[in-house]
Amino acid sequence: MSVLVYTETENGVFKKAAFEVASYAKAVANTLGTTVTAVAFNANSTGDLAAYGADKVLNIKNDQLSDFNAKAYANAIKQAAQKEDAKVVIISSSADSKFLAGLLAIGLNAGYASNVVSAPESASPFTVKRTAFTNKAFSFTEINTDVKLIGLSKNAFGLVEASGAAAEEAFEPSVADSDFGVKTTSVDKATDKVTIADAEVVVSAGRGMKGPENWGMIEELADVLGAATACSKPVSDMGWRPHGEHVGQTGKPVASNLYIAIGISGAIQHLAGINSSKVKVVINNDAEAPFFKAADYGVVGDAFEIVPSLIEKLKQFKAQNA
């Protein structure tokens, strides 16, 4: 028996989320008095995972599985879980992990809790704390199946370093043609930009920016901070920014360390989606904007003056701290 964790890679390199789920898996394994087995697809090297608690890594090397395919990956992870006799299987909240979660849950007859934010409250009954009502509440959820599947919220548990060595083991799950009923034909992804999902800092702007032509300063601010850019829903609805940048209840969720909202009023649907961010800054010329009630830091004033000036201050700060 062990805890199995699916550690995602991008071009053979582990994503930060992989280290977070591994750290989490270690905490669960400690509670249950067992070890952590990580499963990865075509990882270049698995050594890094040991630093976050993995005791063993099943590195699946299979050309058929070189690109993500939800059904085929779910099937392979299922076989890894069965081989390890895992009673708890842990995945991240990435788009890919959420895609395969339901398939894997049925495959393993596992009860699934998504958006889990902390180590299990109790092992028996197995109870986890998760977000519900789009971050307006938490729910304590009891999973009563023999095998449990946990989806960890991004940036909720953090990275916990451990010492040890992870033994890499080759693992060859069987792959069936029927796994490939959905075939990817094209991927359209900006490779030079940090994604909202992975970003530590997100710079988000709303209707207060008046028009798409004014986004230069938003992008520059994001650039200085190494941040992803995001926007409010009307901004994407009006086509000022791509849909992929829409964050909030009906858009992408944000759980970054720092979220900077510029010219965004702070409607309840917007806040619901970004509330898991650790520190929120608002820049708005209306001191009564609801966002000020949700933010940690605020500046009342005109974004068109504040943002360029903030960019300068941050550049100076970076120069001093480089």
Binding site: A105, A110, G111, Y112, A113, T127, K129, A132, N135, K136, A137, F138, S139, F140, T141, E142, I143, N144, T145, N275, V282, F292, K293, A294, A295, D296, Y297, G298, V299, V300, G301, D302, E305, I306, S309, L310, K313
Partner: peptide, 26 residues
């Protein structure tokens, strides 16, 4: 059912926002 929500909790209320003067972004 495989799971049940046994209890709910609302997030802890937020502390007040710290306002910084627009002229003092340092």
């Amino acid at each position: 059912a495989d799971s049940s929500a046994t209890k709910f909790e609302k997030p802890a209320p937020k502390g007040a926002v710290k306002l910084v003067d627009a002229g003092n972004l340092d």
